[in-house]
Amino acid sequence: MSKDSQPIIRVNSLTKSYGGFHALRGIDFEVQRGEVFGFLGPNGAGKTTAIRCMLDLIRPSSGSLLVAGHDPQRNPVAVRARCGYLPGELRFDENITVSAALNFFQQLRGATAACRRRAAVLSDRLELDTASRIKNLSKGNKQKIGIVSAFMHEPELLLLDEPTSGLDPLVQQTVMDLVAEVQHGGATVFFSSHVLSEVQAVAGRVAIIRDGSIVEVSDTSALSGRGKVEVRVRFACPVPPEKVQLAELSGVTLIAFEDDGRLLEFAVSENMDGLVKWLAAYPVATLETRQCGLEEVFHAHYPGKEKHVSAISPS
């Protein structure tokens, strides 16, 4: 197998414990070259721990890792040379200017002319004032320095840990565009986030991590397809509660019964045909549908924290 056909990240039975606390409980996954891989999980699930193991910032308790063809523990410099990293919590020496910080990071990466040019282009694109002292910048602007630093050397692997944290929506969109562009250029992006919509927008595949364990790895489209469709129907006149008998409709659940039966919401997990035929018996004023997508799949892995997927009985 040639090096290029190997996964760029291979994680086998990776565990990380701090005393009796298990941050990672034997996770396994692979990230293929050229894909955007979403890494979903709430705070404390182990996302950052996994990324820090990949960069040899922390040492796994057991298991193995291969990143860009290298074992991070044996050859951390080679791994880091191939990676761009944006940490979730970004800190700098606050007394220097943005340009001094970027120059320093460029020096660490060999200070090539291409790297300097790209840093300048990225700074312009993100509207980053390079003459300012870092201590005078907002959280979002500090995050921009991290983005420039992560992308400027055109790495083959980007490890982004909640990259849009603290950014305004316009800059968030710029970051998402950058992710799409680098993927188009052949780079791989490991995108850790708890913002489901942004992962859904860019990631081809997603791993969901919960309490240090991977609970699902799947194509984003397959996961989204598994999500229910919410149907919100407003009727011209009330539907009596006793008429709302959905037991015979397979895959349809009533999730809201409001306004004395004028407004009903359904979750449809299978075919829509049965519901449409049932609705035909009543005067429908408006009908809206919404694909629940990845969010619902994510919440399904966190029992007790679902938004509103359980059935509601009409009173």
Binding site: L57, Y85, R91, F92, L108
Partner: peptide
């Protein structure tokens, strides 16, 4: 402790 070393060591600099 200030979190600077974390980002520094994510660059190709050996410990």
């Amino acid at each position: 402790e200030r979190g600077i070393l974390d980002f520094l060591l994510a660059h190709p600099a050996g410990r």
